[in-house]
């Protein structure tokens, strides 16, 4: 039972991160390899708002950090990625890699390389909760699962019924046509970057609250990436399934086989997927020819 719970927690972490990859890719065909770094920025923003005494409650600190993260995402598009529209897909991907390196350096400069504990700063207790017989998890892990479910529900609803969600889907299917029909492409792309960074930041903050924060958190972002690809880079539902597959294989490997393999296996699964079905479990086949 504990194992199921572990898979669920890890799967939630990966899901919450990988939806960020999907949103940007679905809308703009850009693979954002700086997503892990943007997630880190969100977590560090929480550290800063947590230190600001005038905010009063922990919820205010989290809320302000989330608003700031959304702004960061939009700014990344407006200031940088907007210039890459029309460039080759490759140039855009390389730009995100460069952005990631820039952020890594900047984060250490701004917040130092030390370990931080935002939960202690916010006076948030993180007790162990017995969910089932002999299966426990921490309070924040439980919140993480809930937040992941809520985030995906909101994203599905937004994409399905929201006016801007419709515009995003339209842009993703055919940007030229959407533009001709009066969709403001820059606004749509900026929104996609904003939402993606927002969800990433939520994940980053919850991880930091649960187990502390330092700059190695970006590696978690990279590990969530196979999950997005296995599920299909342009499918939100795929991101969940992919995350569950990756986390289940990781947890089971740790429990029953060699834990060291847990580092390489997500990428082995990814290669297998690329050989058998490169567009992912739920991805659209035509995607392959467009990149």
């Amino acid at each position: 039972m504990q194992i199921v719970l572990n898979i669920l927690v890890l799967g939630s972490i990966y899901s919450l991160i990988s939806c960020g990859y999907v949103i940007i890719y679905k809308v703009s065909r850009v693979l954002n390899l700086a997503h892990g770094e943007l997630m880190m920025v969100g977590a560090y923003l929480l550290l800063t708002t947590a230190s600001a005494g005038w905010l009063g409650s922990p919820l205010a600190a989290i809320g302000l950090a989330l608003v700031l993260s959304l702004t960061v995402g939009i700014l990344v598009y407006v200031l940088l990625m907007r210039r890459m529209t029309g460039e080759s897909v490759l140039a855009a991907v390389l730009t995100t890699i460069a952005l990631g390196i820039l952020i890594r350096g900047a984060v250490v400069l701004l917040w130092s390389a030390q370990h931080h504990y935002p939960a202690t700063k916010l006076h948030i207790a993180n007790p162990s909760i017995e969910l089932f017989q002999n299966a426990k998890l921490s309070l924040i892990s439980l919140i993480l699962i809930g937040v992941t479910v809520a985030t995906y529900a909101a994203l599905f609803a937004f994409m399905r019924f929201g006016r801007w969600g419709l515009r995003m889907r339209a842009t993703g299917q055919n940007a030229l046509l959407a533009a001709q029909r009066g969709v403001n492409l820059h606004a749509v792309y900026a929104l996609a970057w904003g939402i993606s960074t927002f969800t990433g930041a939520v994940a980053g903050m919850l991880i930091a609250l649960d187990s502390g924060l330092d700059s190695t958190i970006v590696m978690i972002g990279l590990k969530a990436f196979p999950a997005a690809l296995v599920g299909g880079l342009d499918s939100l539902a795929g991101a969940i399934i992919g995350s569950i597959i990756i986390s289940a294989s990781e947890v089971i490997l740790i429990q029953h086989f060699n834990p060291l393999l847990s580092d390489a296996v997500p990428f082995l699964i990814l290669i297998a997927m690329l050989v058998i079905r490169p567009w992912g479990l739920f991805g659209t086949r035509e995607e392959l020819d467009r990149v």
Binding site: L80, L94, T95, L102, I103, R104, G105, V107, A113
Partner: peptide, 12 residues
């Protein structure tokens, strides 16, 4: 960190 940031910036 300065190296890292500068390297990313130059690439961009």
């Amino acid at each position: 960190a300065v190296n890292y940031a500068a390297f990313g910036l130059v690439m961009i």
